[in-house]
Computed example of a mutant assay.
Amino acid sequence: MVERKGALARILPHLVLLTGVAIVAFPVYLALIGATHESSVIANGQMPLTPGGAALDSYYRAIVIGPSRTTREPVGTMLLNSFTMAMLIAVGKIAISLLSAFAVVYFRFPFRKAAFWMIFITLMLPVEVRIYPTYKVAADLGLLDTMAGLTLPLIASATATLLFRQFFMTVPDELVEASKIDGAGPMKFFFDTLLPLSRTNMAALFVILFIYGWNQYLWPLLITTRDDMQTIVIGIKKMIVTSDAITEWQIVMATAVLAMLPPVLIVIVMQKLFVRGLVETEK
């Protein structure tokens, strides 16, 4: 027998969800509004909650010209650097993890389990722990102020390798035998069978890894010295000055809004595959 719920029991979950959305969305709303006002209006702490008339000028200066008092590079360049870095990290991590998991699961070679556990142990060694030797190697190889220097030290992923390994172990052995009967080699089995089955896993990991690469701060701060190589996260930090110079808050707010757009678009575009990759047990 289905019990009838009271009005409060039906409304309360929605009120909690709406309250949570309001708490999360209010800072975003302030950034949107702040980009439409002059810097002096924001700096005096009396910014209204209604839009102003400086939106077009703020976004034009942010994307094309750049803030005059801090960095000489426009936000458009920083967005391109961040997007390129995030894409290379996400695609590179997925590609390397797929191949390493494929080797560990389907190939028989000496010390196979030891190799997997060596990969797994690197989870305890994030880039922050090995920051000095990693920087030293990158500097010795001439990777400072290069896209290779921004991406290569971050491109391996033990987490993605573990996830793909666990998924490959659920693939029925009959598929392997069928591929052998059809005369397919290991790489043909990998590309024709495993990759299509791993599509939702790759989509879910791509969203997570893209946001991971987009939000990187410490490594780009160390590896880049030129303004034309800095990422959007570094650019926002440099725009907020602590000296006597007045921070161009309308440019900062406009830049913060622009910095949110690529990750949000990635999540929206890949939402269905992302959810399926996280919740479905059989692909």
Rank of each mutant, 00 (worst) to 15 (best):
A178G: 13
L194N: 08
L162R: 04
L162M: 14
R112F: 10
G92A: 06
Y135V: 05
W117L: 11
A86W: 07
A138N: 04
L195K: 03
V91Q: 03
F120E: 09
T146N: 11
F102W: 15
P186E: 10
R226M: 12
G185Y: 08
R108H: 15
L143S: 06
L205T: 13
P153T: 14
Y132I: 15
L163I: 15
L221P: 02
V129P: 01
D192A: 15
P186W: 11
Y212T: 09
K93D: 07
L143N: 05
R199P: 00
P172N: 08
F168V: 02
M202R: 08
L218K: 08
G149A: 07
Y132N: 10
V91G: 06
A139D: 10
L197S: 09
T200K: 12
P133C: 02
G183V: 06
I155L: 15
E177D: 14
G213Y: 12
G213T: 12
K113W: 13
V91W: 03
L175F: 13
T84C: 10
L123V: 04
F111K: 05
N201L: 15
R108Q: 15
K188W: 09
F107P: 01
P220V: 03
P220W: 09
W219R: 09
N201F: 12
I181H: 02
L98H: 07
L150D: 13
L222G: 08
F210W: 09
P153F: 15
R165F: 13
M169G: 05
P126F: 02
M87L: 15
P220N: 04
R226A: 14
Y212N: 09
V137Y: 11
F107R: 02
V127D: 08
T146P: 10
I181F: 02
S157K: 07
N201M: 14
L221Q: 13
K93P: 07
W219H: 11
V105H: 04
M169V: 12
D192I: 04
A156N: 11
F191G: 00
L195D: 10
M124N: 10
F111N: 01
A204N: 07
I181E: 03
Y135I: 04
L144V: 15
G142S: 02
T151G: 08
P220A: 06
Q166I: 01
D173P: 00
I131R: 00
S97G: 12
F107C: 02
G183M: 06
L222K: 03
P110E: 12
S100H: 01
S100W: 06
L197E: 11
R165S: 15
L144N: 14
I208W: 13
A204P: 05
A115I: 10
K188M: 11
M124I: 10
A184Y: 02
T170G: 10
A90I: 03
A101P: 04
I89H: 08
V127H: 11
Y132D: 09
W214G: 13
A101F: 07
G183Q: 08
F116A: 09
S179P: 04
K113T: 12
S100R: 00
L143G: 07
M85K: 03
N215K: 11
V137R: 03
A184P: 00
L154S: 09
I181N: 01
A95Q: 00
A86F: 07
A160W: 01
F164R: 04
